[in-house]
Amino acid sequence: MKPDLGLYDYLPWTERPAIRWPNNAKVAFWVAPNIEFYELDPPHNPSRTLWARPVPDVLAYSERDHGNRVGHWRLMEVMDKYGVRGSISLSVALLDHHPEIIEACKQRNWEFYSHGIYNTRFLYNASEAQERSILEDSIASVKKHTGQQIAGYLAPALTHTERTMDIMAELGLLYTCDLFIDDQPFPVNVKKGRLISIPYSLEMNDIIVYNTHNVAPRRYADMLKANFDRLREEGKRTGTVMCIPLHAYAVSQGHRLKAFDEALAYITGHDDVWVTTGREIAQYYYANYYDEFVEAIKRFKTKYPPRA
């Protein structure tokens, strides 16, 4: 184990090139629905126990299945209302289990990126070949079922190895969602090729808000609006990114959906917001800012060389 994987260099908020988004938008706004399959009785990973209760954990399993049977449809209808295309963090096996959901996303021209094969298979202790096979499977399966070349990855259940970012870059992926350290994209240090991080906020993540912080739905809507207001204000100086990661099994419950609907209406009601997808943000950043940020990092490192 290491104290730090050295995945990025320090470049503080105050010392960066200014980002300008298309049409001078202040905030690049993207919504990332997690469309996931959780298994009832997956194999055990020695580093982490999956379900809180002994198998079958009916409560946890069926809670998640609600998203697939009921929730995604409700969420799609709300997002349609405000012209928001989803960037889907996809359990790739769901292509096989529930193709009807995939079809509805394709019709909406939503982006698919990989969230592993199942959210119940953890990468802890995986070999390099095993980890690479997850991404190769993801690339091939999404291509086959949707025609899309995946650009991003959010590790299943946020389970990583020291090699995750290198393997992504090697396989030509554009962005990772796994680093929660910034409100802008930034270059990730990889052995070969290029990779960037784009913000995928755990603070705005419905599961964290509802199940970790136990926030009431209308307060969640307030949090979303406050987060947006601040990033929009700061976006006058340099473009920011706001992501709302969602799980239909949480946000699409009847008692929670209305509050989210109101927050989405508020955010998309501004004309200086770029309502976009993960891939589009990544592509724009590579085309316009990647090199400039790499230079800025070099200059900053020279001026403030780390002593440890």
């Binding site: 298994e39 990973n45 020695p46 289990h97 199942y118 095993q130 096979s133």
Partner: peptide, 18 residues
């Protein structure tokens, strides 16, 4: 120890439920 090969095999990856 590394995970056995079976950890990343998916016998129930199919249409419908697991």
């Amino acid at each position: 120890a590394e995970l056995p090969e079976s950890y990343f095999k998916y016998p129930l990856r199919r249409y419908g439920m697991d």
